[in-house]
Nucleic acid binder design. Structure first.
Lengths: 210, 210
DNA sequence: TAGATTGTTAATCGATTAACAATC
DNA sequence: TAGATTGTTAATCGATTAACAATC
């Protein structure tokens, strides 16, 4: 069976659907039509139906969508039924903040280890996790079957460490370093969070409205 | 003069150009062609030329682009020649981490104040800035001519505070709360950073490659 | 001058929206 | 059954890529 490639535009919208459906679920809404959801989300009903139908028919004519069912279905599509053993590489301000952010754990991204090169940080404990030296990265990843690395390093150090992570068998990198990582292994997935890019976009838009 | 509306797709790419040109500048590269830049960035040369020509002709036939000139030009387009008086609302882990992140200051986003409702946090000093109670928000914004607020609050509190910020005369909100802010005032710009959305996209892609 | 490379128009591709038959 | 709403095809719109004359 040939699986039609889903466009990134669609994939990027899935978490948003998931978020809105989660809110509806919290408010005990049982069913929702694409029309009603489109009003709340500020998108077209047509787009919602098109997006969902990339993955299957989750609705029912004349009724709409069952909120809980659709919520869980999208969660599965996003791979949220899995647990991801996660490490944070770079235990500076941002790394520590992310380690303390419990929302990730709730979704199954369990922070198992924290790493840094800075000897001043090594040994410090953040949310019960001791910061380790980068030397221990390889063994730790293998022993603890780490799937995912959060990269919160300066851009100079990021490419080398990213490459090491790939060699040690990691499956995905969530990169906060202000650089586009070019990985050799196509099976390792990178998702970039360029905070400064986002801030500059804001700055542009502020300039335009003044 | 009618200014053609620039698409968000183009605007979102500007910081990336800016980043690559900054790197070239650091490496003392004087000129670059759209072709060479396209190789480095992994985009088409055609797209680079199209994007730039939304804002003017920055290049020269037979030569390409002067790196420093183009870098500065894009900086100006992005509004980076301005200073932005900034506050951080929500001084939890993420708020404090962002307060400590010096890269923002370098680009002209100066953190002038930190706010929280939690009485345990009020009075604590982060990078020389004392965390204040939310009660003082209005006066602080007016006295210090604050342009920009970074919102690092739980989603329950975000909409009300965002609304207050708008009423107090803020120009832009960089929102980290996992909610889409709907503001009444169209002249206030919001840029959302949905970290969990990004993580879910990564999770989807990991699932797909396994 | 000849070669290189831009700025820009035209062609293509993909994503979004509209429309509607199917059906709950 | 009648009304509502999906799933899906067709139409439209916008963004990307290709092509090339202009020109440094």
């Amino acid at each position: 069976m040939i699986q039609k490639k889903i466009s990134t535009a669609v994939i990027k919208r899935l978490p948003k659907y998931y978020r809105y459906l989660g809110d509806l679920l919290e408010n005990d809404v049982v069913r929702i039509s694409s029309k009603e959801l489109s009003h709340r989300m500020g998108v077209t009903a047509s787009q919602i139906r098109q997006d969902l139908n990339n993955f299957g028919g989750f609705g029912q004519q004349g009724y709409g969508y069952n909120v809980e069912y659709l919520y869980n279905a999208i969660g599965k599509i996003l791979g949220l039924e899995n647990k991801y053993n996660t490490i944070i590489v770079g235990a500076g301000n941002l790394g520590q903040a992310l380690a303390n952010y419990t929302n990730f754990d709730k979704r199954g991204f369990e922070v198992k280890g924290l790493f840094d090169v800075n000897p001043r940080l090594v040994g410090i404990t953040v949310r019960g996790i001791e910061i380790k030296d980068l030397d221990e990265l390889e063994e730790f990843i293998k022993v603890n079957r780490i799937d995912l690395a959060i990269l919160t390093l300066p851009k100079q150090k990021a490419p080398k460490v990213a490459n090491d992570l790939v060699n040690y068998g990691i499956k995905g990198i969530w990169n906060f370093a202000p650089i586009d990582l070019k990985l050799t292994n196509k099976n390792v997935v990178v998702e970039n969070v360029h905070l400064l890019d986002s801030l500059m976009t804001l700055s542009y838009n502020i300039k335009e409205t003044i």
